[in-house]
Amino acid sequence: MESTGQNPLQGNQTPLMDFILLGFSDVPDLQGFLFGVFLIMYVIILMGNSLIIIITKVDPSLQTPMYFFLRNFSFLEICYVSVTAPRLLTDLCRQNRRISFLSCATQMYFFLVFGATECLILTTMAYDRYVAICNPLLYPLIMNHRLCIQLAVSCWITGIPVHIGFTYLIFSLPFCRSNHLNHFFCDIPPVLKLACGDTFMIEMLVYAVSLLVVTIPFMLILGSYGKIISTILKLPSAAGRAKAFSTCSSQLMVVVLFFGSATTTYLSPKSSNLTGTDKFLSLFYTIVTPMFNPIIYCLRNKDVMVALKKFLLKWIVL
């Protein structure tokens, strides 16, 4: 990969070896505070999602398709956050924030793959709730173990080939403006800002992929929950309506938080992107939302709360 040097006025060409992640270097007095905050959030994400994985695996009452997908989702959240959080924490503790060209491409690739997987798993979870509430008699037949495995595997592998090519195209661009990446990880918008030459086709590809991976799943989820809410309102039992709303509202909150921030970042016009806003939104869907996910699923799901209490009491007795 060849690119011009950091000074665009130089005529010679030099290989681009690395980027410098500026991150939050513009607030040097807050580095220690930010490190503490992000470390606590990362630990909460790891512990909360690990706990959900354990209790949905060991508790007999949670061996259903819904909790099978929740277990996949919790494991995915750990992977998704671990792509960016350790690097962010490390950069907050050191002056040298260089990241190699290959490492930057690798980070972007895994971030995109896990992000696409999250969109698909949330869509699958919405479909599971749609079948359970709108077609309860057929639910065991439709959502059988084989289909659940197939859906989960499809969610995990669908984004792999797409984002290999997508990441390759982005990092095949010439970078001639600077190697200072004004972000805390290698995301698409800040990397494209450093590219020179015509990036129009790549930007259109970003919109197309975002449409397929983010917008269409989001619309499918909203359609599913529209049907679900309509069905819930027709339930004769107030207790049944309350339980159904409790289960679905937690998932809908997670969907709105994740898709709302991601859509704003990837589908907003390039010219309207403000650096500070970009960083805030990125923090929101990379760390803040994943931190709230286990809290939302635990506190708003009575079955999970009961299983959690049983699990904790068992360990306290031991």
Rank of each mutant, 00 (worst) to 15 (best):
Y207F: 06
G5M: 12
N273I: 15
K309R: 03
I221A: 01
W315H: 08
S100M: 08
A239K: 14
I45W: 04
M219I: 15
L62S: 07
L16H: 03
R98M: 13
F114D: 04
R177H: 12
V58E: 07
F111S: 13
F218V: 00
P136Y: 02
F175Q: 02
E2P: 03
S172T: 11
L147S: 13
A242Y: 12
Y127N: 08
L92K: 00
M219A: 09
S100G: 15
K243C: 09
Q10H: 12
L274I: 15
E2W: 07
N135L: 14
I53D: 04
T158F: 15
M201G: 02
L89H: 02
S3D: 14
P294G: 13
T264E: 10
A238G: 07
G276Q: 08
T199R: 02
M47T: 13
T265V: 15
D59Y: 04
E203C: 11
A152T: 14
T275K: 12
M201K: 02
T265G: 05
V317H: 03
Q150P: 00
L212Y: 08
S246I: 08
P140L: 10
I316W: 01
A208W: 04
I188S: 05
D198C: 03
L281M: 14
L211N: 02
N293T: 14
I149R: 14
S103R: 07
L283A: 06
M125L: 13
K309C: 06
N301P: 00
G115T: 14
L318V: 03
V317A: 06
V83C: 10
T4A: 11
C196H: 01
N72V: 06
V214Q: 06
A238K: 14
A132W: 06
D59S: 14
S237C: 15
D128N: 14
K302L: 11
L137N: 11
G5R: 11
V81H: 02
M125D: 04
I78M: 11
C148K: 08
C134G: 13
T64H: 03
K270Y: 14
Q31W: 00
L192H: 04
E203A: 08
I202L: 14
I221H: 01
Y42D: 02
I188C: 03
V254Y: 08
I142V: 15
A116K: 01
W315I: 03
F259M: 07
I142A: 05
F280M: 15
L267V: 10
V288T: 10
I160G: 05
L318D: 01
P174Y: 03
Q63F: 01
C93K: 07
T117Y: 00
N49H: 15
S272K: 05
I170C: 11
L16K: 10
L89I: 06
E2V: 10
G197T: 01
S100C: 05
V43K: 01
C119W: 00
K193T: 09
I295N: 04
L283E: 01
F24M: 07
K302D: 11
C119M: 12
V113M: 02
G165Q: 13
Q63S: 09
L9E: 11
L92Q: 00
R87V: 10
F73E: 00
E2N: 09
L89N: 04
A244N: 05
